[in-house]
Write a protein that binds this DNA or RNA. Structure first.
Lengths: 161, 161
DNA sequence: CCGACAATGCAACAAAGTTGCATCACAAAG
DNA sequence: CTTTGTGATGCAACTTTGTTGCATTGTCGG
């Protein structure tokens, strides 16, 4: 996820061939700043700290980012999909650590155990497109503070457009 | 998934300490018969071939099965969770192969590449509860028959309660 | 200024679950 | 036999997350 941390949102959009708009910059900025996979609702809350934004537009931007390879969509155990910025090196997959207590979804370093899993798919009588690896558990922060969820959702106003 | 295939629904419920009812037997029977992870909607359709059944009751039964360790809940790329019968040997995880075309979710043999991934979680500063491994791609049936989805959903009447 | 086209917004819809409460069935108590 | 309690089931309404269709805005080339 280095690229996401060291590259400006504008640069990332340009790299993916996506026209930069204030909203898109805000979305990419929010995702890059978080440093982990966020549900659409959290991204929306983050973006709305900077500017009003519409739910539908956000979903369309996320779809666009995914389609252009800038972001990836991952399923957590819950109902909401999480989105995280692609490491730049296109196609390089990475797993995630999902905290079932606070819902945070940390990106795991690339390669960790993934090559093996990918090889598994190769013997499968199926055209493999991608591999999802998710470790479910309780993160360190939540383990310490039994009781209140730690580092959970964004606190931005969830008020509607 | 051997246990699921060779054990009667009644026996499985007994083993998990769940009281057997006609509906629960039908649910377990449907899941065992499918031999793969099914979304709640498909299970409902299968059960309704035998008897009328309510959506809510099905969800409650599925929750119960998961809670008692008889079944496992897995997220596919889409919105619906899939449920499959636990191999009996409690906690033994297995991955899944998800076809993005027809939505079928085959259970992978245990152990295949999973031990390695589990080890990955061990170094994570987090209490690992479980590991989800999903291979997304296009299954053999769908690859052959480009066009119509193959082996997709159940054809039962999706009519309501 | 005008038309085209992309981006955004709004409202309504849709799918998958969830919740609260009514009802039913069956068993134990009286 | 009737009563009463408990768990299973059913029903309706609601929530969350995402999608679709259409209207509006904004920008660019002419």
């Amino acid at each position: 996820m280095d690229a996401a941390l060291h590259e400006s949102p504008a640069r990332m959009l340009a790299r993916a061939g996506i026209e930069a708009t204030p909203l898109r910059l805000a979305v990419v900025g929010a995702m890059a700043g978080a440093g982990r996979a966020l549900p659409a609702g959290d991204i929306l809350a983050l973006v709305r700290r900077l500017r009003p934004a519409n739910r539908v537009t956000l979903y369309r931007i996320l779809d666009l980012l995914v389609e252009k390879g800038l972001a990836r969509r991952h399923s957590a155990g819950d109902r909401a999909q999480r989105y995280c910025l692609e490491p730049g090196t296109a196609g390089a997959p990475h797993g995630h650590a999902y905290c079932v207590r606070c819902g945070a979804m940390q990106c795991l370093p690339q390669g960790a155990g993934l090559a093996d899993v990918a090889a598994l798919g190769a013997g499968l009588a199926m055209d493999v497109l991608s591999v999802e690896v998710r470790i479910d558990g309780v993160c360190a922060a939540c383990r310490e503070s039994k009781g209140r969820p730690a580092g959970a959702a964004v606190d931005g106003d969830p008020g509607n457009s």
